[in-house]
Each structure stands twice: as structure tokens, then as C-alpha cells.
Amino acid sequence: MAALREKIGIIAGAGQFPELVAEGARKDGFSVVMCGFVGHTDPAIESKADVFEMLHLGALSKLIQFFRKNGVTRVCFAGAINKPKALDVRPDLRAAKLLFKIRSKGDDVLLRAVLDELESDGLQIVQAAELVPNLRGPAGVLTKKKLTDKQRETLAYGIPIGEQIGAMDIGQCIVVRENMVVAVECLEGTDATIKRGAELGGKGCVAIKLLKPNQDERIDLPALGLNTIQNLVDGGYSCLAYYAGKTLFFDRDEAVALANEHGIAIVGVNDEFKSSLV
């Protein structure tokens, strides 16, 4: 009799991350039990799962029942949720009670509250990135274009501000130029922030994408990709900085090649690098 495969639950949002996590889980021998959300998750992702169900965002009871019914004890989050669309969520009774209990509706507070609910029903939350560790952006300068003294000065100014904004649970990305904050990510997301930053600041801006200081690293890691770099190219940016090891970097080889083509510097920031800026 064949041995039963261990099951992993995937809560899938938009983008390619859920598919990559599912593929990584299968390679590691897991059976994939996945749920997606109407209006956020590509229905085609169903082909990557052994068991799949599409739910409406806010159906917390059905989400938990789905995983428990299928024998799942470990769950990970993968993929983005469109934040403006999430404002139209119709919570079930359990989700409504959860929302009533919490004072802030910031990303971190909401996600931690949901995690607590899942864990209270015996579902252990694991980090999706552990199933695809090669997606973590490395430390150091990735591009042929190295950092100029001016860019290092801009990062020394902008990184602490980005961390303070993140600590207030506002956003993960800021745009800086000439020691001025040009744009701050809020509900609209990183791509829209980069575009707005270019409109306001002109050519030569620096984008900084950081993990919030109090962010639970099991969920909602910052993410970059080829589309991010294309937006930087279109906006005439000179530099992109991200948190090394704590940022998902999709299609990295193609993204770095595009940055090289247009003279954009990309740097993965760690504690050693931040110390060198002081």
C-alpha cells in the first residue's frame, strides 16, 4: 500500500507565487490542498493542486473547514490580494467578529488576527518562501551598474524613513530623490507608487522596498519582479534597494538583465550594508 503524502495547505492570491509554491511543494513530496479567492486568484491555478476550492474573500469559516476536512495541519500564504478590491469584502460571521475585535485595519494587524484564528483551529502557519528558497533576493549589488556616492547618500537618508513608515503599517515602498520623500506606498501597491514617484520626482529617483519592522515574515513578504524593473525603466529611475533575504524576487535573471540594459543599480540591503552607509 502506497504511503500517504503529507499535505500542505496553500492560501493562494494573485500572481505567479502560488504556482511556484505548489510546484516546490510537489517536488518536496507534499500533496497540495489549495484555496483561492474570487476576483483575486487565477482559476487556472487549480491544475497545480490535488484539491482546490475557490472562496469569496471573507469566508473565514469555510476556509478553515476546507483545510480541516482535507486533513491539512500546515498552511502557507502565497500571492497578492488586491487591496482596493479587498475593501469590498463581505465577511462571514466569524470574520465579522474578528474585524470587530481589532481597532486597526492595517495589513499587519489584519493578517496577524487571521493567523491567530487559523492557529486557534490547529492550523500551523509556515512560510511559503521555504518551499522556493531560490526566490529570496540576495545581498549586495546585483547589477553591472554600481552605486554612486549620491545614491548611497540617498539610501542612507531613505532607508530609516522607509522603516519608520513601515513600523506604522502604512506600506513597504518609498520613492526618494535629492533627500526628499517623493512618494509613499499606501493602498495602491508598489507599482502604482513607482509610477507616481516618477511623475512627481522626475528622472533619477530611487525606489526603496523594505520589510516592515513588525511584519510577520511567514506572510506578505515584499516582492519584486520583471514588471517592477520595467516600471523603473519607464520612470527613469536610477536605483532600487530591497531587503536581502526577506524579499521575493521573481524572474530575477531577466529583471537584472533589463536593469543592466538601462543603467539601473539594484542592491540587496542587509545590516552590514546599512552600517556602511552611516
Rank of each mutant, 00 (worst) to 15 (best):
G204D: 02
I125E: 00
A183G: 04
F52E: 01
D271Q: 15
D271N: 14
L277C: 13
M34F: 07
I219V: 15
L63F: 07
G201E: 03
R68V: 13
P138S: 10
A255L: 06
T193Y: 02
A255N: 05
D220S: 15
V72D: 01
V181N: 05
Y243N: 11
A3P: 02
K195W: 09
G204P: 00
D149V: 14
G171V: 02
E19C: 12
R94W: 09
G39C: 08
G171R: 00
A244C: 12
K146A: 09
K97N: 13
G204Q: 05
I165Q: 00
I208K: 02
M54E: 09
N231H: 14
L258I: 08
G106W: 00
K105F: 15
V233D: 01
E254T: 11
T148H: 10
V75L: 10
D220R: 12
H40P: 02
R252K: 13
G189R: 06
L118G: 01
E130P: 00
G263P: 06
I45N: 00
K146I: 10
Q230V: 08
V51S: 06
A78L: 04
E6W: 09
G13L: 06
G245P: 04
M34Y: 05
E217M: 13
A139L: 09
R112A: 06
C186M: 13
V184N: 03
D149C: 12
F37S: 03
L142K: 01
V72L: 12
E153S: 13
A255C: 07
A12V: 10
E217H: 12
L4K: 15
G268T: 10
T228A: 07
E153T: 12
T190K: 13
V176S: 01
G236W: 03
L248P: 01
V181Q: 06
I102L: 14
A2L: 15
R136T: 04
G79D: 09
F66Q: 07
Q127S: 15
K105D: 10
S275A: 15
S47A: 15
V176D: 00
F249R: 03
I8E: 00
F250T: 04
N82C: 11
A3Q: 11
H40M: 09
S31K: 14
G15D: 04
V256T: 09
V181M: 08
L211H: 06
L93D: 15
A95C: 10
A113G: 06
A86H: 10
L111A: 06
V51K: 12
A259L: 05
G197M: 05
L118P: 01
D253Q: 15
I11S: 01
S61H: 13
A113R: 03
A265P: 08
R152G: 05
D220I: 13
S31V: 08
C35E: 08
Y237A: 14
A198K: 07
A129Y: 04
I125W: 00
P138E: 11
C173F: 08
L240M: 10
Q230L: 12
T73S: 15
A12D: 05
G202S: 07
K145G: 06
F100V: 12
N70Y: 10
V278I: 14
R5H: 12
F30L: 08
K150A: 14
L110G: 02
R152Q: 12
L200N: 08
L57V: 08
L224A: 02
L155Q: 02
V89T: 11
A156R: 11
G202L: 09
V184C: 06
D108P: 01
K144E: 15
L57T: 01
R252A: 02
F17Y: 09
L98N: 11
